[in-house]
Design a protein around this nucleic acid. Structure first.
Length: 664
RNA sequence: GGGCCUAUAGCUCAAUCGGUCAGAGCCCCCGGCUCAUAACCGGGCUGUUCCUGGUUCGAACCCAGGUGGGCCUACCA
């Protein structure tokens, strides 16, 4: 019997909603789990939600609900999404559950008792009003102002527990050396290695500044910080009941490449520190790539428009989910970045699913209502059997290597061979000349091949597999531990069994429907042009903006002479373009009445589309020293603008004051 | 700017160790078939494998530099 197979997705942070990226990971995990079951492995598939932290606590407060209640709500939404995508996790863990809390605290104690957790101080920029740390990025510059309170964040030292990560660098490197497939794909392992080789610093793993988290054992004023809490889920989910412990260690943690570091470095280090031996560590971390949709990278705005579950349901209430799963697994080489689009879905639906697989099933139906007697086989049957054997083996090897893309490729090669077989064997000719024995052999052969295909397709397209089997008069198939059901050779059918047949599984779309789908799921026009995302505005800040608390924000008085030092001028924007790799910056040419227009780089791309700026009259601070942004990008001045939570608004001129007019 | 990844046919992507691998599917064209969802089968078409240099008997593959793209991070005068 195969050893147990335990596959996980990351637990998803409930600050976000399920989107294409999370769907991709979860579907991939589901595919691997279904495949493992088919092969007879004792299989466990885990997903869940990550629910603690300051962000969740704050959103809950703003809604006036207890964090647990808010978490219940969002977590339920995640849980409800997976069946809509054909995913059937065996367990769904939430970090706010008692079993998780107990498990994490247990892990904490083990590490503490072995001496790798120690009390120290965490230093960061802290807003008193929020009772929270921010990075400089989160704060408004200059001055590190809190976006909510408008007050300056202070550098504060806080008591914090630290994990002695630095101690594990050598053992981690040894692990990677000994087990080169620990991180997949291989190119990712190199990344991880070089990160570890560069040196690891100890990790702050607790906070005292918020309460929505898991209390540190014997020091309840501390709450565990994100990664310690979150990563542990893989372990805590298989602690109770005790028989579930057979699944540890995990066979593979599926993760996006953005969180690889945490899984490939922190997680094994935590486990090592808790006393786990190398063979008790997860066997593999598999980092998949990122998806773009229609060539565009995923963004907040896109997440809201492209819901894979909606796409699936619009496509077809019966097989839409399978079609989406198929396309995600087929079109995107697992482990690499890839693109997903409605055009691709429609093309593959028509060609690979409808014409190749679906139509094959229909080609058999007119010839028999029951499974005929198979009779003597010839070279054509041998060819098909050979193609089948090769394809089935290749597909299994690909699935074993967590490469569903290649597995599907191999399966479709078999499908093509079956179509060739129909052509060459020409059952219609046998029928015409009344050769029932030959016709029977051909139909029986095809029925058996179709059964094999229904099995091989099942991990990716479970409902299509079921529909195929129903038309072939076969019972639904289910995984049985210890029984390998992979069809290395096509199975045999008993003569006389019913072939119920049925309507095409992948009916062609009407032109109108296709157009409608294309329109509805077209990638949205270039994102980022919209002024101040309304999405953000719907979460009003707790306190009123800066004006209410002028004292906190006030600067020391200046003299008129100080003010007079500023050279402020009216400028007209001649051109504006985005700056590559710098999302927030726009590169502007502004005419301010000098010989040459000024080049000004302004951090306003989040609030202004470049096109909208051309011709605008703005106020320019003209006597600042040039500021270097790298790569020859030099700003010769700055634009005056007002800024609050709603975004950035440029100061402009009431009337026609020409370029160069002095502002005072 | 720092780190990492990536670039192959019009499109989406393959090519285990550098050596009959420059390939598949889609699109398009031609032919065949008629069981089937105007489906299927056969044939044809398109390549300076991003650029430049290097290593080698031999490079899509290795090395150096450059360019385009992506991700993380930084930037917000």
């Amino acid at each position: 019997m195969k050893s147990p197979f335990y596959v996980t997705t990351p637990i998803y942070y409930i600050n976000d909603v399920p989107h294409l990226g999370t769907a991709y990971t979860t579907i991939a995990a589901d595919v691997l789990a279904r495949y493992a079951r088919l092969r007879g492995a004792d299989t466990w598939f885990l997903t869940g939600t990550d629910e603690h932290g300051i962000k969740v606590q704050r959103v809950a407060e703003q809604k006036g609900t207890p964090p647990q209640e808010y978490a219940d709500e969002v977590s339920a939404m995640f849980r409800a999404t997976w069946p809509r995508l054909g995913c059937a996790p065996d367990d769904f863990i939430r970090t706010s559950e008692a079993r998780h809390k107990a498990g994490v605290q247990d892990l904490w104690r083990k590490i503490r008792d072995r001496g790798d957790l120690f009390l120290g101080h965490y230093e960061g920029l802290y807003c008193v009003g929020c009772e929270a740390y921010y990075t400089e990025k989160d704060l408004k510059q200059p001055g590190n102002l809190c976006p909510i309170h408008g007050t300056a964040a202070e550098t504060v030292k806080e008591e914090s527990y630290f994990f002695r990560l630095s101690k594990y660098a050598d053992r981690l490197l040894a692990l990677y050396e000994k087990n080169p497939t620990f991180v997949q794909p291989t190119s990712r392992l190199n990344e991880v290695k070089s990160f570890v080789q560069a040196g690891l610093s100890d990790l702050s793993v607790s906070r005292t500044t918020f309460q929505w988290g898991i209390p540190v054992p014997d020091d309840a004023k501390h709450v565990m910080y994100v990664w310690f809490d979150a990563l542990s889920n893989y372990l805590t989910a298989v602690q109770e009941p005790a028989e579930r412990r057979r699944f540890w260690p995990a066979s593979v943690h599926l993760v996006g490449k953005d969180i690889l570091r945490f899984h490939a470095i922190y997680w094994p280090a935590f486990l090592m520190a808790a006393g786990y031996a190398d063979d008790e560590l997860p066997k593999q971390i598999f980092a998949h790539g990122f998806l773009t949709y229609g060539g565009q990278k995923m963004s907040k705005s896109l997440r809201n428009t492209i819901s894979p579950a909606d796409l699936a349901e619009s496509l077809s209430p019966t097989v839409g989910v399978d079609a989406v799963r198929y396309c995600l697994m087929r079109a995107i080489s697992f482990g690499q970045d890839g693109d997903f689009s409605i055009d691709d879905v429609l093309a593959r639906y028509a060609s690979e699913l409808g014409n190749s697989l679906g139509n094959l099933l229909n080609r058999v139906q007119p010839f028999a209502k029951v499974v005929p007697s198979k009779g003597v086989t010839g070279p054509l049957e041998a060819d098909l059997a050979a193609a089948h054997a090769e394809g089935a083996k290749a597909a299994a090897e690909a699935f074993d290597a967590y490469n569903p893309t290649r597995a599907l490729d191999a399966i479709w090669t078999v499908c093509a061979a079956a179509n060739v077989y129909v052509d060459k064997s020409a059952p219609w000719a046998a029928k015409k000349r009344g050769d029932d024995a030959r016709l029977g052999t051909i139909v029986a052969t095809l029925v058996e091949e179709l059964e094999a295909l229904s099995v091989m397709v099942a991990p990716v397209m479970p409902s299509v597999a079921a529909a195929m089997r129903a038309q072939l008069g076969l019972p639904a198939q289910a995984g049985v531990v210890g029984r390998d059901q992979w069809p290395f050779a096509a199975p045999t059918r008993s003569t006389g069994e019913a072939l119920p047949g049925g309507a095409p599984i992948f009916p062609r779309f009407e032109k109108e429907k296709e157009q409608e789908l294309r329109a509805r799921f077209a990638p949205p026009p270039e994102a980022g042009a919209a002024p101040a995302a309304p999405e953000k505005a719907k979460t009003p800040p707790v306190a009123a903006p800066a004006a209410v608390a002028p004292a906190a924000d006030a600067k020391p008085a200046v003299t008129y002479d100080d003010f007079a030092k500023l050279e402020l001028k009216v400028g007209v924007v001649l051109s504006a373009e985005r700056v590559k790799k710098k999302d927030k910056l726009l590169d502007l040419r502004v005419e301010i009445g000098e010989a040459e227009p000024r080049r000004i780089v302004a951090g306003i791309a989040t609030s202004y589309a470049p096109e909208a700026l051309v011709g605008k009259r703005v106020v320019v601070l003209a006597n600042l020293p040039p500021r270097e942004f790298g790569k020859g990008l030099v700003s010769q001045g700055m634009l005056l603008a007002a800024e609050d939570d709603a975004g950035i608004r440029l100061l402009t001129i009431d009337g026609e004051s020409g370029p160069g007019a002095k502002v005072r």
